[in-house]
Design a protein around this nucleic acid. Structure first.
Lengths: 246, 246
DNA sequence: ACTATGCCTTGATCTATATCAATAAAAGGA
DNA sequence: TCCTTTTATTGATATAGATCAAGGCATAGT
């Protein structure tokens, strides 16, 4: 890992194909880069922002990963999603310029900050950027819909398989292995995200291991049989639509 | 009801405070009105669009109500949301110019069609419209998050109470009674939306009736005790955040 | 290296809600 | 109007997954 990943600017960023610059001309990317602020690295458990904070920015994950969640008055949390490199955080604050969830770093991570005011200005002058922002928001909405489907009408095992497949696809999109990866979140986080107890999550890992579908070593995951995993989720989504951990 | 509600233009529309024109100057609303197409009325069970359709428009509900849902390869549906007057449909198509869900009219309804291409052009010239579009998308995202919370970590009774409260608030926002209204969707639709069986939904209606919290007469609902209903949902959301049926 | 602390796993039991089954009540059509 | 079809209610039973409880492994700190 580059130790100063946080100083790289959009035109040189290896994520530019996934992130906001996707589809823009080179000179347009350069313009975009002028409004992007590179922030200092964040530590495990450090908050990007807290639920209810005033927020006039979007944030792109440059490295590492994050978890977003909403807490109620009793402190009960619901994990809303996980963010991997290239993904945009802060869309929830667009309504009132105030965040509706908290976001916490799951590991040492870096983000790029995009001031909304300047992003909007730039969008006015650059229709392709405007389109790209729209596309990304649309992606966020579809991925939330996928989560709604998963939570509403799936068994625990289907949820688990869906979760693993989704991570698999996301890592593959980043150029990493689609079958061997490390979970950056705890069992607790996974359980909460899937609307299950952590005991159930644990049992499902064991069950899938015994069946030889996956190999689990702590947070290390190896998928031995992608086809089986897909057959568990089977008819749920047309395969290309397992977007949803954004 | 005005029989030609579908011919009214934005500056004269009684929904303009809820819909896209909110916060715009009078002349700006007039400009917006020039790109809005009034469509002919739609009948019960008529589709606004089908999952997978090419779609380059947004649609605002002018009158009536709609249900959106995603179907898998087996034809199993998950209802994603219900739309009431003033609300925007079609955000799911922003990602690929292709819809990811189907939307069907629950009653005789009218919609306004907004071509995205022209809306984007107008946004470039009109920062306040651009902001408003962003706000509305932000609202869609937050309301999806509310649904995720509801589906992930609530009991059947909490879901039901949340559902009723949310409808109550939405109708109140439209200037209708917050305690007396008609459901435009079937028990089946509600059950599917909440991730419950329709038997459970039926039983919950009965239970809440017996406890005197509500009075149910077919699809007619009267809330007799808003406070009790809120106490069922109690610590879930800070009350002002029961946005989520959008 | 040793101990403490927090994950994670595994087992036993319980319960909320689904499922199955049978009416009952509306809505729609002839 | 009566008959058919759909939709809603109610009851009995089954079960997936939660909860309760205990023990095993790591990682981190001394």
């Amino acid at each position: 890992m580059e130790s100063n990943v946080h100083k790289i600017s959009c035109p040189d960023c290896r994520l530019s194909d996934l992130c906001l610059p996707y589809g823009l001309q080179q000179n347009e990317v350069q313009q975009l880069a002028t409004i992007v602020k590179n922030k200092r690295p964040m530590q495990v458990d450090e908050y990007l922002y807290l639920q209810g904070d005033a927020c006039q920015n979007l944030y792109a994950v440059k490295s590492g990963s994050f978890r977003s969640f909403i807490a109620d008055d009793n402190g009960n949390e619901q994990t809303i999603g996980f963010y991997l490199p290239g993904e945009l955080m802060g869309l929830d604050a667009l309504q009132h310029s105030r965040t509706t969830c908290s976001i916490i770093a799951l590991e040492t991570s870096t983000v790029c900050e995009l001031p909304l005011l300047r992003l909007n200005e730039l969008c006015s002058q650059m229709p392709s950027l405007q389109n790209q922002v729209m596309r990304i928001m649309g992606k966020g909405i579809s991925s939330d819909h996928d989560k709604i489907i998963m939570l509403g009408h799936r068994t625990a095992k289907e949820k688990m398989a869906t979760f693993l497949l989704m991570l698999s696809r996301r890592y593959a999109g980043l150029g990493f292995s689609s079958t061997v990866f490390n979970l950056t979140m705890s069992r607790q986080d996974i359980a909460n995200f899937l609307g299950l107890s952590n005991e159930t999550v644990s049992r499902l890992f064991t069950e899938l291991s015994k069946d030889g579908v996956i190999t689990v070593k702590q947070r290390g995951i190896q998928i031995n049989n992608l086809a089986t995993l897909k057959s568990i989720v089977k008819p749920c989504l047309p395969d290309d639509q397992l977007s949803f951990i954004a």
